[in-house]
């Protein structure tokens, strides 16, 4: 009896030792991975992209019940608001018709003036439409995974928009899927212009729904409702893409509400924008 109990305690000790050894080994591996992740983003990105590609079909299948649930909730929300929505849409339609006629006039005038001044046009951006397959929201990161990758011509750094405005930029490209860092992610920094005066600033994500404007300059005044658009500086994004409007100003922060609503992202467009970069220094 005594022999048996000592045998069990010895087995328990061996198991404990093995468990402790595994724990320490895995902790060391984790720290090594962290270091590699910091030091060599290229290899990490390649592995992460390959892994995301691998999981894409499963994520798509898992999305089917989630989509059905969200569609059901959306239908109920829409049914409740259908009358109000109809009245608002009629009003919007009237306003938009007025703006449409004004915009057509201004576009024609703009074209004529550009022709007179020999203005070189901005390069047109080609577009790829992609479906959102995963939305990795949360307190720690704000990104989405879309269909389309290397084979579709998607490249790191390209702007991603929906029908209303800028959504984010490509940060990881796999063979058949890509990751889009949303504009409200804490790592997102976008050169923007603010208001009618077009003040240069940077839109900085903070993982909340309202990213903030930084590096605006002390003497520049911004008002509530001022529009925020991409500046096109650094050639990363086409200039003039709508982003949002200023909704809060206090001593510390200027916050922007983005036009592109996160919960309505189903399809997005990736802009293959190329800036003329054939400058040569002699």
């Amino acid at each position: 009896m005594k022999q048996n109990s000592s045998k069990f305690s010895r087995l328990g000790n061996i198991r404990n030792f093995f468990q402790r050894f595994t724990f320490i080994t895995l902790i060391l591996i984790t720290f090594t991975i962290m270091l590699i992740g910091k030091a060599d983003t290229f290899i990490v990105n390649r592995i992460s992209s390959a892994f995301t590609d691998l999981f894409r079909p499963v994520i798509t299948i898992m999305g089917v019940p989630a989509n059905a649930i969200s569609q059901f909730i959306k239908n109920i929300e829409e049914l409740a608001a259908i009358r109000d929505q109809n009245t608002r849409l009629k009003q919007d339609n009237k306003t938009l018709m007025r703006w449409f006629s004004l915009a057509s006039q201004l576009e024609a005038e703009n074209q004529q003036l550009k022709k007179l001044l020999n203005v070189i046009d901005e390069p047109e951006a080609e577009e790829i439409t992609a479906r959102v397959v995963a939305d990795t929201g949360g307190a720690f990161a704000q990104s989405i995974i879309i269909t389309g990758g290397n084979k579709d011509g998607i490249q790191k750094g390209q702007a991603v928009v929906n029908e209303i405005g800028l959504v984010g930029r490509i940060t990881q490209v796999g063979n058949s899927s890509s990751r889009v860092l949303l504009i409200n992610d804490i790592n997102s920094r976008i050169p923007v212009r603010v208001g009618d005066a077009g003040y240069n600033a940077i839109l900085s994500g903070n993982n909340s729904l309202r990213p903030r404007i930084i590096y605006l300059g002390l003497k520049r005044s911004v008002s509530l409702g001022d529009k925020v658009i991409t500046s096109g500086d650094a050639g990363a994004f086409p200039p003039g893409l709508p982003i949002g409007k200023v909704v809060s100003i206090d001593k510390k922060n200027i916050l922007v509400e983005t036009f592109a609503s996160r919960d309505k992202l189903q399809f997005v467009r990736v802009l293959k924008y190329k800036v003329l970069t054939d400058l040569r220094l002699d």
Binding site: I59, M62, G63, P65, A66, N67, I69, S70, Q71, I73, K74, V132, V133, A134, D135, T136, G137, G138, Q142, I144, I145, S208, L209, S261, R262, D263, K264, L265, Q266
Partner: peptide, 11 residues
């Protein structure tokens, strides 16, 4: 991580 598209839940 499936896109739920329910306002308030995705963030």
């Amino acid at each position: 991580i499936s896109p739920t598209k329910v306002s308030g839940l995705v963030e």
